[in-house]
Design a protein around this nucleic acid. Structure first.
Length: 425
RNA sequence: GAGGCUGUAGCUCAAAGGCAGAGCGCCACACUGUGGAUGUGGAUGUUGAGGGUUCGAAACCGUCCAGCCUCCCCA
């Protein structure tokens, strides 16, 4: 440790020690549970893709600036996948007429983006993707939001700790039209809306004026963005919020006209989730309806709705709120000690019997002072320790110590399994 | 890609040009059949890397690397 220099990991990559792995698995298991509650099927695509797949969305900064691209030995440009949606579009397009719709798919896997690592953002991350394709209705949109809300609930995040903000691109487009904002200008205005909470108020006003809007339009826009009842004028949103209520997640959602989302392909409902403490300003997840995705990869038009969630932001929030109740990193609840070299065989057989009953057991790997073995058990969080010394062996007994309440009792070896099964329940 | 802050023991940090330290953790013993407590003792560093200035650098200067924050973008 003192002389050799440890070679650094690649910048922005993740190292999952058992504690971090438990967090990742916690997120993965909750994502799976939420997905499966709604009948979604798990799928995955390649981690490597050609750059052409992403080039279909030309002009996309995601690919040009933020993708890991390198030549393979044949000189072709290979990309570490920065997102899943193009892969989804291709895989659906390839079997478009064989698949059964509405199609409900979910996926959880690694992605890479070459950006500056900072809080909530790394170059390597895991992302949960959930999509429904082949149906276009506010109720379908509501189902996706309900999956996401159920994930929050399963993680122990309460409605007062997180909120899913919802808007609709069509509604905003119509409002922009009423303000007589030209169609060419609407994208830039959308981006301005996205950036509004990052800029000072008067600077933002000037920014919007610089885009070519009049004072009247600016004031109309500001009034629009403050109108939290605007959703009542949209049939789609009225139906969406009704469905969300019926699906039991009304507490988690709120209309917010300021949610636009940068991605160009969203055409209707859009949504993003945040933690209300504001400790992490980034969205926990985001998604929306896209109606024209398959055309770009050669398929027939097929509408869909989906969202994606990275593991980094939600991981920070779960850690901060102390919600990691999972004991995934607990290796075993039972440890069998080795009293001395001569009794190793007895201990090993006891451990084997317990394992045959499906109990996870650590057998101390060598004779050592009991003190040392107990200390190890304590540090590993093991609940029960079995001691098999000369006194026990001569009587056919074992001593079982409960490290949680410090009690211990000597019982016959034949009782051990049933006593342990009972206490571990 | 742009701007700012930071980097000292495993961790959190002190030492403000003059002997590299503390707390916690770790290891051993007290305790040869029992963990967390207590006591005693012990180990640990190319001060992120490599240069420069200086009699002398953890400190000052520039370079590189890494982390954090803001912007860009986004999960």
């Amino acid at each position: 440790m003192s002389e050799k220099k440890v070679i650094q990991s690649v910048k922005g990559t993740r190292e999952f020690y058992p504690t971090e792995m438990a967090l990742r698995n916690f997120i993965y298991s909750r994502a799976r549970e939420a997905s499966e509650l709604f009948g979604f099927q798990e799928w995955d695509g390649p981690f490597l893709e050609t750059i052409d797949l992403y080039a279909a969305k030309s002009g996309d900064e995601l690919v040009k600036e933020q993708a890991f691209v390198f030549p393979d030995r044949g000189g072709d440009l290979i990309t570490l996948r920065p997102e899943l949606t193009p892969t989804l579009a291709r895989m659906v397009a390839q079997k478009q007429n064989e698949l059964t719709y509405p199609l409900r798919w979910w996926s959880f896997g690694p992605f890479w983006r070459y950006e500056r690592p900072q809080r909530g953002r790394s170059r390597e991350f895991f992302q949960w993707n959930v999509d429904m394709m082949g149906v276009n209705s506010p109720e379908a949109d509501a189902e996706l939001i309900a999956v996401a809300a159920n994930f929050l609930r399963l993680c122990g995040l309460k409605p007062d700790q997180t909120v899913i903000l919802i808007n609709n691109r069509k509604l905003m487009d119509q409002q922009f039209a009423e303000l007589e904002i030209t169609p060419e200008n609407r994208l830039a205005v959308s981006n301005a809306v996205d950036r509004r909470n990052k800029m000072e108020s008067d600077k933002w006003d000037q920014y919007v004026i610089d885009l070519g809007l009049t004072e009247v339009q600016l004031n109309g826009l500001k009034k629009l963005l403050a109108d939290y009842d605007l959703w009542k004028t949209s049939d789609e949103l009225v139906r969406l919020f009704a469905a969300l209520k019926d699906m039991g997640v009304g507490e988690y959602v709120r209309f917010d006209p300021n949610i636009m989302r940068g991605l160009l392909y969203y055409t209707g409902t859009v949504f993003e989730a945040f933690d209300t403490s504001g400790s992490v300003k980034r969205a926990i997840f985001g998604g929306g309806r896209y109606d024209n995705l398959l055309k770009e990869v050669g398929g027939d038009p097929l509408s869909g709705v989906g969202f994606a969630m990275g593991d980094v932001v939600v991981g920070i929030i779960l850690k901060e709120l102390g919600l990691i109740t999972d004991q995934t990193s607990l290796p075993a609840k039972v440890m069998v000690t080795i009293f001395d070299a001569g009794s190793y065989g007895v201990s090993a057989k006891i451990a084997t019997n317990l394992r045959n009953e499906g109990i996870n057991v650590i057998l101390y790997p060598e004779p050592a002072k009991l003190q040392k073995q107990f200390k190890f058990a304590d540090k590993m969080g093991i609940k029960s320790v079995v001691v098999v010394g000369p006194d026990e062996i001569s009587q056919g007994n074992v001593t079982l110590k409960n490290l949680t309440d410090m009690t211990q009792s000597t019982i016959s070896e034949s009782e051990l399994v049933s006593v342990l099964l009972k206490s571990l329940k």
